[in-house]
Every structure is written in structure tokens, then in C-alpha cells.
């Protein structure tokens, strides 16, 4: 890219990251390496930008995306406990994906359903007034459905 100066190249970093995340769903290590070569910026500089913005994720989204709301109402209603339940059950932290690629976990600030607090959003569907028990049941149900879909294994 000889027509562009270093500064111009570097200014394309965020749009490129957005483009990659849109296509791939996350910022893969391969993508950081690729951008480093093509934009003339070190991998570290790219990683710094990608981790600064909450928008960018560094793990591929799972087949089921779980968003735990920690907005004011959900926080008061025990959202943190719900998060612990998932941590315990799936063994992942917010921002991570289970090694089998099935679940990914995110914390969100507010999903606009405060009347139903505490809420958990799974694959776009809002589940309100969740308890640790109902959340466990929900996760079990998803697993069961997955198994059935895969031929009852």
C-alpha cells in the first residue's frame, strides 16, 4: 500500500477491526497478525486498541450467546449471582467461549427490561425474573435440545 502514509494506514485500524469482527464475529489472532503486516503497526498496538473497546471481542461467539444484564435493576436483583452460576456451570468468564464453541458469555449494561429484572438474554431472547435455579434449568434445556438436534447422542 505505497500510496498511503503510515499515519493514514494506522487510522484505518479501527474500521478494519470492525470489518473483521462483522465478518468473523471476533478478532482472531490471525487477524491481528494480518493487520500488523498490512497496516505497519505492531501486533501489540492492535491488541491494545482491540482490548480497549468493549465492542471488540477476542473470542469467537458461541453457537449460543448468553448476555447477563448487570444494569442497575438487574444488579440489585442479583445479576452477579446469575453470572456466578454460569461461570460455575460452563467454566468461562465474561468475554470467553466454551472450548466446544457452544456457549459464549458477555455482561451487558442494560437490556431495557428492568421490570423483569434480573434478566439474562440467550440468543436474543430475554428471560426475565431469573433465579439461579431457573437459569440452570434454562441452560440444561438448551443442552438437551442441542443433543436432540444432533441426533440424540
Amino acid at each position: 500500500m505505497p500510496d498511503q502514509t503510515r499515519a493514514e494506514l494506522a487510522s484505518r485500524l479501527i474500521p478494519m477491526l470492525q470489518e473483521i469482527q462483522e465478518e468473523l464475529g471476533y478478532i482472531a489472532p490471525e487477524a491481528v497478525e494480518w493487520l500488523s503486516e498490512h497496516l505497519g503497526v505492531s501486533k501489540q498496538e492492535i491488541f491494545g486498541v482491540a482490548t480497549f473497546y468493549n465492542f471488540f471481542r477476542l473470542n469467537p461467539p458461541g453457537r449460543h450467546e448468553i448476555h447477563v444484564c448487570l444494569g442497575t435493576a438487574c444488579h440489585v436483583g442479583g445479576g452477579e449471582k446469575l453470572l456466578d452460576t454460569i461461570r460455575e456451570k460452563l467454566g468461562i468468564e465474561p468475554g470467553e467461549t466454551t472450548p466446544d464453541g457452544r456457549f459464549s458469555l458477555e455482561r451487558v449494561a442494560c437490556v431495557g427490561a428492568c421490570a423483569l429484572a434480573p434478566t439474562v438474554v440467550v440468543d436474543g431472547e430475554v428471560h426475565g425474573r431469573m433465579t439461579q435455579r431457573s437459569l440452570k434449568r434454562l441452560l440444561d434445556r438448551i443442552e438437551r435440545e442441542d443433543r436432540e438436534a444432533m441426533g440424540g447422542k
Binding site: 489472532p29 505492531s42 501486533k43 501489540q44 498496538e45 491488541f47 491494545g48 482490548t51
Partner: peptide, 24 residues
């Protein structure tokens, strides 16, 4: 980054979680 042009380290994350680290 500025003087040696290596960019071996960076600030990772932000706010309270900020730390000096390498990519991944």
C-alpha cells in the same frame, strides 16, 4: 513504540483492568 519502533508491549484493556502486556 515511539523511540525504538518495536511495539513489543502495550496497554491491554482499560480502566481498572489496564495492565502492560503483549498481544494475547
Amino acid at each position: 513504540q515511539e523511540v525504538r519502533g518495536t511495539g513489543a508491549i502495550t496497554f491491554v484493556k482499560r480502566g481498572h483492568e489496564t495492565r502492560v502486556d503483549t498481544a494475547f
